[in-house]
Design a protein around this nucleic acid. Sequence first.
RNA 1: CGGGGUGUAGCGCAGGCCGGUAGCGCACUUGGUUUGGGACCAAGGUGUCGUAGGUUCGAAUCCUAUCACCCCGACCA
Length: 575
Amino acid sequence: MYWKNAFVHTLREVPSEAETISHKLMLRAGMIQKLSAGIYNYLPLGLRVIRKIEAIIRDEMEKCNATELLMPMVIPAELWQESGRWDYYGPELLRLTDRKNNPFLLGPTHEEVIVDVVRKSVRSYRDLPLCLFQIQTKFRDEVRPRYGLMRGREFIMKDAYSFHADQESLEEMYWAMYKAYAAIFGRCGLEFRAVEADSGTIGGSVTHEFHVLADSGEDTIAFCDSCDYAANVEKAAARQPLPAALPADASMPQEVATPGRTSIEDVASFLAVNPRDTVKMLIYEVDSEYYVAVCVRGDLVVNEVKLRTVLDAKAVTIPSDEIVRDKLKLAVGSMGPRNFPAGTVREVIADLSVRAMGKSVCGANRDGYHLTNVYPVRDLTFKRFEDVAVVVEGDPCPRCDGGRLKMRKGIEVGQVFKLGEKYSKPMSLTFLNDQDSPSLMTMGCYGIGVGRTAAAAVEQHHDDDGIIWPAAIAPYSVALLCLDTGSEEVYRLSKSIHDALEKNGIDVLLDDRTERPGVKFKDADLIGCPFRITVGLRGVKEGVVEFKRRHEKSLEKISKDSCAETILKIIGRQS
RNA sequence: CGGGGUGUAGCGCAGGCCGGUAGCGCACUUGGUUUGGGACCAAGGUGUCGUAGGUUCGAAUCCUAUCACCCCGACCA
């Protein structure tokens, strides 16, 4: 490919909208271009990266006996009404009507459609198991799209759906997909981690997310430093300590004045105790219907995802101080679980950490007062203990002895789900089993954010000069710089190298512009092809061209006459 | 959706308080000099100042409304 034909337009300055590295670099490298908030044009260079990722995905999907199809992006509302998601899904779902005023939606995911596809065709257990996938543009009207391809409204996703006669078959496919995902991200040259996760609104029970490790990630993952336990922090559990024993000399709770101290930090320092020895109590509003009180050890944070799961709720939010004070008649800043006036809340839930506490401080349920000498095992009367706290670095691993949890930031690029009968039931996806009786299919679904994978690769592989693409997903393997387009000899040599590489199946981008060398070097670094070949007057006079790897400083000089073969050998060895 | 901010040339920005010929850098075009890490000189083109209304002799500037975009938060297979 010749640069002049490749539609590569790099930017020297960063458009002001970009914040994250991948967003900035992909814009500057001329890979993407914004059309609207969270909606991007994929320019030729960016599209090549997308296509390479897609090719790897297709290859691995086919190894799992998954077959590709393509479903429409515009979906009749009817199907979603059938599954119940038409009402359940919030404003993230873009709804539209056609000229006859019939309701449609832009697909944010395709469970309903695939179920419809399969139920129209599959009747017998003999057709199962079955796995179908597509690579399609999705639309989710995100509240706040940001970070370029990382969190767009329109985005390309690979989604696969599997159908099974029984749980064992689903299990088998689930782990086959799990392995395929590991292979895909490995082949893309990414450092990633598969983690246990919360299954969220899509439903189902067991799920793993695949995260590319990068400091800029939006998710936090916790993993054990000695075994292979890893989980999204939303889900991560720690080994819970045993309930504390009550010391024989334990004295009775005592009310102390703590004027104006309403935060854990203030109360702890005022009473000269560690925040670990205080009990924090928070009020949550659940599904806009009722309230609960939640206690955690003072230094911990309530995990709202866990809380939601524990309450089987859709949403939990912290109400304003005014509501807590005026409507619930509670002492904001001085709430505590001992003698808690629970009349206005449905129940009190305590984190397991509280049970393990010894002598503690908690609110006295009276403005400006706290209690000291509280022993939760003795003084707290409520019964419900749950794991509702966010784990912290150093917590003991829930799986193994002696392991400690560590934290990293991750970018979620893929997820595998066991859906079970969540869609097959409301949509009557049945088959005849070998007993000749109708039975519900059980399903799995498996997604990969293709654009997000590209962005994650940039987050993980770049330097001050630009992108450093992993070889397998680079837009071109080789940036071939012809420094002196005015010289017949240099130009001819450049072209012959270009042709020889292309003939051997190597992607090569020949910079044939009449630009100064500095510009070409800068652009080559920015675009980030793994290999660079420089053909210039200076080298040609000595009979050499230069070969450089994007991630290394050093250059190799290669005889110009045998350079195509030499380079083929080097690249063949590496990729 | 709550809080904050920005819309002026393709990109990055100044101008705005204090109304009076719309500017700078990069990019682009032409000519020349340069030529191995984003060159230099000269000349040139480029705008409904986000949109609509209002105040005024006169609005990028003041007022009102509105739209878009960005950041923080909430939200998110």
